[in-house]
Design a protein around this nucleic acid. Structure first.
Lengths: 278, 278
DNA sequence: CGAATTGTTGATCTTGATCAACCCTTGTGG
DNA sequence: CCACAAGGGTTGATCAAGATCAACAATTCG
């Protein structure tokens, strides 16, 4: 897959809204118990909201950024380019996810991040987040754990591309995305999910060609495992699909902070009391 | 590659020595400027040193650990297993590197870590390191950056396995290991490095078969790019090798903290003042 | 409606897998 | 010191998953 044209930032900000900081707070609360004070500190983080178009790049390779991005809604992806134009997709950034959390300082990006569909991202000053992390240990730990989850997912991807065949790779990815989206409530009433990847994007994710992705999807449909059309994915038989893919959702469970003894639940803002996958 | 037999911990501790904490301090200092106080706090971290045999597993999948490990000397690797016994190597842990830095709490491991050759590892209580991170912002940042480097390397690996052919993948890995080892002073007088991977391990790293690894190495030797025998690697033509692999060492430069204005250098313990790759 | 993007299919080719020997080195015990 | 075993490395022959090339169909969108 060649990357031909790619739009760049046209700098269109909408005015300051609370939703960015709020999405962040909700997400971090899944990783580690936060005190009421910490929660409200997060809520009051100044966060500019920006709309980005589909295929718009908002983190540039080689640049360094004074902001951390939170995806408020939509679907973004990280990628690298090879000299000859081939693209490797390195991860997906879903609602509530952060780009480059753990930068306590500005760091040179080694990859791009672009929106897969029209999305809303929140921008938080690196210094602001760093200050919060320095002051509030639980926020700091939650950020570290979020970064750890990202590594955990990356390891699965290496496993995926290194050891599995085309059908398994694709199945594995579908399972991952499905679980991650559902965990943040992004599920449609009919059980389907928003799946904005073209077959070309899938190919660049899995290290395959579009032709082969097409044939593999055909196979998955024929076997009654999935329904996928016009960017809507329904997993028809999760059990068989996960089995085929060798998918074990445990690696996504980092967000589940352990029960803290008999301590009452309402002393903190920790989303549901139930242990929840990402 | 099948994993047949694999030795497990026989719990042999040698008595407490300073070298573990010291290796850690030196490494972290490369990521972020540390104050004298922070540096000595690291030095006085209690750290038990343990010898591990070649092929001995010291971090178990599915378990959680109260310790963070520092490799003092030797060579370790992370890996996952598939049901059918296939192994995917997910990263190498070199002298000074940490396993699972960012666990502010005990976390369930999603992979194994084993020694590739006889090694020495230091064990630091998770709680101790967490306390230091909470107290000293620069230590905290350095740990976050170390974790970030690990992600950065993982992204390169996905790129590698997803987009490059056998010869390129192997070349890329050789470049990575070479730079990382040399950056921590692990270079022999003749310019060679310790390279304890068997061809089978290389295969499990790159998602190839041993046969194909063997043929690719033959190619690299024939082209005068490397010399490799009895676990000693010499890169004969780094320029051509890196070029062939599409290797750009920038992604390893996270350790290089930026110059902090005109501030004098000797107010902190920051290894060399020169920007140094990992 | 027409252009562009995305998806689908067939034919053929290539990289790397698989299977099967065999060699070389290293280490061990008699 | 030699014999032998075992692990690792090397080579050849054959096979298959996935790549490449080339059309063309179906959607989407202005």
């Amino acid at each position: 897959m060649q990357m031909n044209k790619m739009q760049f930032l046209t700098s269109g900000f909408t005015s300051s809204e609370p939703s960015g900081a709020s999405a962040l707070a909700t997400k971090l609360a899944l990783f580690h118990r936060l005190s009421a004070e910490e929660h409200s500190a997060l809520q009051s983080l100044s966060c500019r909201v920006r709309k980005v178009d589909a295929e718009q790049v908002f983190v540039q390779d080689g640049t360094s950024e004074n902001h951390v991005f939170v995806i408020i809604q939509g679907f973004a992806y990280r990628y690298k380019l090879l000299d000859d134009g081939r693209r490797q997709i390195l991860g997906f950034v879903l609602p509530g996810d952060l780009c480059d959390t753990d930068a306590g300082k500005s760091v040179r990006h080694d990859h791009f991040v672009a929106a897969m569909q029209e999305s809303e991202v929140g921008m938080i000053a690196v210094a602001d987040l760093a200050a919060l992390r320095a002051k509030y240990p639980n926020i700091n730990k939650a950020c570290s754990l979020a970064a750890m989850l990202e590594r955990s997912i990356l390891r699965q991807w290496v496993m995926n591309v290194g050891q599995r065949n085309a059908v398994q790779r694709i199945s594995h990815l579908l399972c991952e995305i499905s679980i991650r989206l559902k965990a943040v409530g992004q599920e449609n009433a009919d059980g389907s999910i928003n799946f904005p990847l073209t077959q070309a994007a899938l190919a660049d994710t899995m290290g395959l060609t579009t032709v082969h992705v097409n044939r593999s999807l055909k196979q998955l449909r024929k076997d009654g495992l999935i329904a996928l059309r016009s960017h809507r994915l329904t997993i028809l038989d999760y059990g068989r699909l996960a089995d085929l893919a060798g998918f074990d959702e445990d690696y996504l469970q980092l967000m589940c902070y352990p029960a803290v003894g008999a301590q009452a639940r309402n002393d903190s803002y920790g989303a549901d009391s139930k242990c929840q996958a990402l």
